[in-house]
């Protein structure tokens, strides 16, 4: 039963990684850049949610919606002012800018909200379901997290696969020049991708801090890096890959904590990543891109 307990916690943590990884992978797919500030958008989302619920006593779900809205705006602004001017610049310049943006967001949070950890109120309380005569206990937040992740995955797949805007996103990710010749506004599409990723980051922030309630300006950094790892693990640019990579990363991390050593868990996670990349350099579901000449 403990095994099952660990497995469920792993899936729950992995669901959060998956939601964050979607943001990384979508932005990478379209803009071909690694947005290292993505993790910090999670933190901003969590703070907005925290203030909405703790200070203004709003309904937690309303808090999440406000956080989503503000993070969406934040994502669009970050893209517009930090990344868009570098559209033609070498990718290293964009990468450094993204790292800078990450610190900028963390330090702004430090100024605004101080470094004192805040205790995040769980968005649906701390109750749990007891199964098998109380041998297996699954917290409400775990159930919510997993369900939200599945819903996001389904909605996003339908959006990308079936809608005109979703198809335009795929077209842009393949060939921006050709997409422009179809009449697709590439800048608007990139902007929309950042908006969607950042909105999802706000949800991830609320879920993450409901499960692990300490909120600090650096809260988003490590989950951000892990989710990036998950995206690479699953194959960066691939949406099902982000989902699979996130879940696997969560499960491996929890099992490593439980059965090997809680100090070494991150090392185990990255060791698995290295092995996967040695065997499948493009990640589990990634497409190996052949550069055509």
């Amino acid at each position: 039963m403990t095994f099952l307990n660990f497995f469920i916690s792993g899936i729950s943590l992995g669901s959060i990684y998956a939601i964050i990884a979607l943001g990384y992978t979508m932005v990478y797919g379209i803009a071909k850049m690694l947005n290292f500030a993505h993790g910090d958008v999670i933190m901003v989302g969590a703070y907005v949610c925290f203030y909405a619920v703790s200070r203004y006593n709003l309904n937690p779900f309303l808090g999440v919606i406000i956080a989503m809205f503000l993070c969406t705006v934040l994502g669009i602004l970050v893209e517009r002012f930090a990344y868009k001017p570098l559209r033609q610049a070498p990718s290293l310049a964009v990468l450094i800018t993204a790292i800078g943006m990450s610190y900028f967001l963390q330090n702004t949070a430090l100024l605004l909200w101080s470094s004192n950890p805040k205790v995040f109120p769980s968005i649906i309380g701390r109750g749990s379901f007891k199964l098998f005569d109380g041998n297996l206990s699954v917290s409400h937040i775990t159930v919510l997290t997993i369900s939200v992740c599945i819903v996001i995955m389904i909605v996003l797949s339908l959006f990308i696969g079936k809608t005109k805007l979703g198809k335009a996103m795929r077209a842009c990710s393949e060939d921006k020049g050709a997409a422009q010749l179809m009449g697709i506004n590439v800048n608007a599409t990139i902007s929309m991708t950042f908006a969607i990723g950042s909105g999802l980051a706000a949800i991830a922030g609320a879920l993450l801090c409901s499960a692990y309630p300490t909120l600090m300006p650096t809260t988003g950094a490590l989950p951000g890096i892990k989710a990036f790892t998950a995206a690479v693990f699953g194959g960066i640019g691939s949406i099902p890959g982000a989902f699979l990579g996130g879940l696997m990363l969560g499960v491996i991390e929890i099992f490593a904590k439980a059965y090997i050593s809680s100090q070494l868990s991150d090392a185990v996670v990255f060791a698995v990543l290295i092995i996967v990349l040695l065997v499948k350099p493009a990640g589990l579901l990634g497409k190996s891109i052949q550069e055509k000449v």
Binding site: K167, R170, E174, D175, G177, A178
Partner: peptide
């Protein structure tokens, strides 16, 4: 119609 066709290969 661009040079080298440039169809969307994954679509």
């Amino acid at each position: 119609v661009p040079e080298g066709r440039r169809v969307f290969a994954q679509m």
